[in-house]
Write a protein that binds this DNA or RNA. Sequence first.
DNA 1: GAGCTATGTAGAC
DNA 2: TCTACCTAGCTCT
Length: 288
Amino acid sequence: MPEGHSVHRLARSLHRSFAGGPVRTSSPQGRFAAGAEVLDGRVLERADAWGKHLFLEVEDDLVVHIHLGLYGDFFRAKAPAPEARGAVRLRLENERWYADLRGPTVCDLLGTEGRDTVLARLGPDPLRRDADPALVRRRITTSRAPIAGLLMDQSVLAGVGNIYRAELLHRHGVSPFTEGRDLTGEVVDAMWADLVVLMKDGVRRGRIVTVAPGDVAALAALDTDRPSSDDPDLDGGEDTPARRRLRRSTGVYVYRRDGRACLRCGTTIRAEELQGRRLFWCPGCQTV
DNA sequence: GAGCTATGTAGAC
DNA sequence: TCTACCTAGCTCT
């Protein structure tokens, strides 16, 4: 389930598995049949991500633009591919791997111009080396919109979703309702630098962790109705339902923790709908 | 097993 | 502003 870090991770995985050789393409579901027919047998040159958008660059200047949306998924496994299960929009196959795309919001065949049109709508991506944080600073500090909305606006910066938004604001003590123009450039720069670190870590782990290592045990102890753990290194070991529950409760400070106490100040974390998305924050320590 | 919720966006109205 | 996308994990019964 995708924020920018998982799309970048997916792009790397697809690039490693398919780039540099011909790829068989099909659309078992049928909704991308025409595109798959054009692509079939061509060389996939590169898989790349910008924010939450995935681009498969294919020979002859063809580009597949994919956005996973809320519950899209690109499942990759070793060949041979079994019969497609569920609504597989696009299947990629070569001698060693296959990958099935299900439930995307967008799966379009474009040219390079079409890709550039998509990119023109997107702000800098913290996971890209060519990103310009000065542009983000300018867009935020000149806006009257609340920072919570700006962080989710993909034309301001690309790749941040609801979890990184909530966690970033908490880590910097910033109220989600503060207008962008009321934040200093220093605060915005610090948030950007933090995002770069957090999202790179997310790519490496394959999940979002914003809690500092020293806070993991204290956070688990706050949740009296959940199992505590003597071993805060929850990324290792056997994956059981209890460990998954514990990971969810200890990887973040505020996201989906409404009604629980804030680790920093003890105030009850709140949730509210803002522009159609649930927003989580601590009114006690997010005061900037 | 049913029902609910969700890391998101595009397009219809 | 509402709905489609049509998956998967969780909670409740």
